[in-house]
Design a protein around this nucleic acid. Structure first.
Lengths: 181, 181
DNA sequence: ACATCTCACTTGCACTTTGCAAGTGATCGT
DNA sequence: ACGATCACTTGCAAAGTGCAAGTGAGATGT
């Protein structure tokens, strides 16, 4: 029994497809939920809550509700355990696979991740095959993670602790004319 | 003379490329700035401020600074007018073209936009050519908008006004057991 | 030289969103 | 019946956002 779809708040909207896409799912947590459904084999609230990304449960609940409302995912009560809700991408949601794949490739190529470079290069070369495989697994409801190394604590270079509030920056100015704070 | 690159705040980070990408540019305004640089021919603060999306100038300034800091865009003082700053995608930034194109295609296919359907279908079929053209224009610093119909007030079906604060939703529950608010 | 306008911001403040930690109601297993 | 689990909800503090006015540097016209 799916959730009752809620209204999606409408913001300043240009009618541009990019803008409208981002209104639907453009925040970080929504995309990470889509990622986890798509390639990590996650299905339940608990799975998402413990993804390793640090999401707050009220935000997770809110995003799941929004994604259901937007028709990106669907929710079903588990027939064997009434406490659980199982989430699944819809047709509209699985069509986000190209976006997700391109984000993955961009991130692996430009950020200091621990993603296996050879695997990423292979996925970039065989983009169509990867997308076909993603869709096949979705059709067949394959519960196994497609990219088990994705997400979670991946080995990578140590990072500095969270910095203090950012300092002000000098404007682009001729030398010697900077403002005294 | 480019801006001094600032530190990018680091949040809960799994090391996953998708997650890290979203930390860098994953908010809506950042992506719209990248869109406008990429396909609308925008270069200046004033261009972005009047994109038709309704961004606040303090947020725009903040996002431009963040994108410069992340190496996605670069800023240069206009040699002929010292008041102006010209922004341009970097190599890292133009590599977001596949993501942007996929968002455009997804949005046009799944949301009620005024995007020309034939053009979108053509772009989806000739994805590689579109990406090659996007990069060529970037290399040659072609100032003409690649997709002049993108963004701005696009003719599309009328939308309801912004709704009131959302109501609470019933949980997935057996019938008859809904909570009294 | 001066007045006016332009440009890219900054600022103060009200409002909204986010995240923490505790709690709730329904469900399950013993 | 009871304790634990699951998916949330709640109150509140902190952080983020957006409005509207303002600022300093630069350009233009007189």
């Amino acid at each position: 029994m799916p959730f009752v779809a809620g209204e999606c708040p409408i913001r300043n909207r240009s009618g541009c497809p990019v803008s409208m896409s981002l209104e639907v799912f453009g925040d970080r947590w929504s995309l990470l939920i889509v990622r986890d459904l798509m390639v990590r084999g996650f299905r339940t609230f608990h799975d998402f809550a413990n993804s390793g990304e640090g999401i707050a449960t009220n935000i997770l609940a809110d995003r799941l509700r929004s994604l259901v409302g937007a028709g990106i995912i669907q929710a079903e009560a588990d027939p064997r355990d009434g406490r659980r809700v199982n989430y699944r991408l819809t047709e509209k949601g699985i069509d986000l696979a190209p976006v997700m794949l391109d984000l993955l490739i961009w991130g692996a190529q430009h950020e200091d991740t621990g993603a296996p470079a050879a695997v990423i290069a292979e996925m970039a070369r065989n983009r169509d095959a990867v997308l076909a495989e993603t869709r096949r697994r979705w059709v067949e409801r394959d519960p196994r993670p497609m990219l088990p190394w994705l997400g979670g604590p991946t080995p990578r270079p140590l990072r500095a602790a969270r910095p203090a509030k950012r300092s002000k920056f000098a404007r682009l100015r001729r030398p010697g004319k900077e403002k005294q704070a």
